[in-house]
Simulated assay, not measured.
Amino acid sequence: MTNSRLRKYTENLLQHADVVIDGDRPWDIQVKNKNLYRRVFMQGSLGFGEAYMDGWWDSESLDELISRLVKAQLDDRFKSIALMMTTLKAKLFNRQSAKRAYQVGEKHYDIGNDLYANMLDSKMIYSCGYWKEAQTLDEAQRDKLELTCKKLHLEKGQRVLDIGCGWGGSARYMAENYGVEVVGITISSEQAALAKENCRHLPIEILVKDYREMQGCFDRIVSIGMFEHVGYKNYRTYFKTIEKLLQDDGLFLLHTIGTNSPSEHTDPWIDRYIFPNGMLPSAQQVSSAFEDYFILEDWHNFGPDYDKTLLSWHKNFNNAWPEIKENYDDRFRRMWSYYLLASAGSFRARKNQLWQIVLSKQGLTDGYHFPR
């Protein structure tokens, strides 16, 4: 099929999303290379994302463009060989095995603390903020941490395990504001080094460990923005591990991105460039994995708040680019912008959700009283 015929076919598809090629609205797509259509038809979302990185197309409002494409389900119309290979690998291998656990740390979290320090809030919280009353990113992350602590019913002297502790922001908040002792674990050596510095002189221990390597007993366990790296073949192992580490009267809070239907893989572009071996769980996959181990106390969805969080990160990233660009090239800039804005569009279209789930081992005698 010629480029002109491929363009015509693409134009007809884009009508369902009210998107025009070379149109004058912010969400319209500006095509810079006529070979874009063939690349997308051959490679699907991987080719679409790589073409943006290569400067083959642009959009003034990339986040709104992606939101419209997702709402019109056009992302499902391009099933590429890359997607089939990603699906096959997920079926044949345990892509989130203990041996592979540290790959995402090296690929994503170790790329530079300067990037994250400039992009995130002052506490360096790399997960969805809570925007119910917040006006700024700092307020949204503070409110999210406060909401998390209240849901955990934290009390002074408790011992808390923070699985996926990042740069130590959540551990520090819990220790400073609730007087608890925290053990934080991460699979990123760069995160651990900065987390130790951020948590000096507090009752906090930071370890470079996979969750499957942990031993001990904790009054509370929290996992914020880490479950996306666990993988469906390990969900039962994950919850079984949590159950063994948690006191009988303890609480566990899981904060994770979720998706609307079960899957076994992630988007090929995300897998190659952002989160290798990652995948988003469905509600069914999560609930079936913790059955027999836990009682569900609370399930809270504030997915639309991730749209605002991602746009705040992108604004900070753009503002900081002149300061950090010596450590990265322009292709990285376009890649990172695509990651943040495409993710924002996906949450805006409600394809992705953000869940906070509270679980207990035996059920609270007087019931669970939850804040919002």
Rank of each mutant, 00 (worst) to 15 (best):
L296Q: 00
S337Q: 14
Y338D: 03
W321K: 12
P322G: 04
L296V: 01
T259H: 08
L296W: 00
Q284Y: 13
E291G: 05
I270K: 00
T309I: 08
L310D: 03
T259S: 12
R333W: 12
E323G: 05
L280D: 00
I324A: 08
W321Q: 10
A283H: 11
R272N: 02
G258I: 03
E323P: 01
I295E: 05
S312F: 09
Y293L: 07
E297H: 06
I274T: 00
M335N: 05
N319S: 12
S288D: 15
W269S: 01
V286R: 00
D330T: 13
H265E: 14
Y338K: 05
A289T: 04
A283D: 10
E264P: 00
Y293D: 12
R272H: 09
D330A: 12
M279C: 12
P322F: 04
N277C: 07
E297L: 06
I274C: 00
E326H: 14
H300R: 05
F290M: 09
F275Q: 03
F275D: 00
I274V: 15
P262G: 11
N301K: 10
I295S: 06
L340H: 10
F302N: 08
L341P: 00
Y328G: 08
D271C: 02
L280E: 01
G278L: 06
Y273M: 09
R331M: 14
W313N: 07
Y306N: 13
F302P: 02
E291I: 06
D329H: 07
E323M: 11
H300P: 01
M335D: 03
S263G: 15
M335A: 11
L340A: 10
S263R: 15
T256P: 01
H300V: 10
W269M: 04
R331H: 12
I324E: 10
F302D: 04
Y328N: 11
N316I: 04
N260R: 15
F332A: 11
A320G: 07
P262Q: 11
T259M: 15
A289M: 06
L341V: 02
N316D: 09
Y338R: 05
W321V: 13
F290V: 06
K325Y: 03
S312K: 13
N318F: 09
Q284L: 14
W313P: 03
N316Y: 06
W313M: 11
N301W: 07
H314V: 06
S337H: 08
G303V: 05
I324V: 12
Y338E: 04
Q285M: 14
S287E: 13
H265I: 03
D305K: 09
D305H: 15
S312V: 05
W336K: 07
E297G: 05
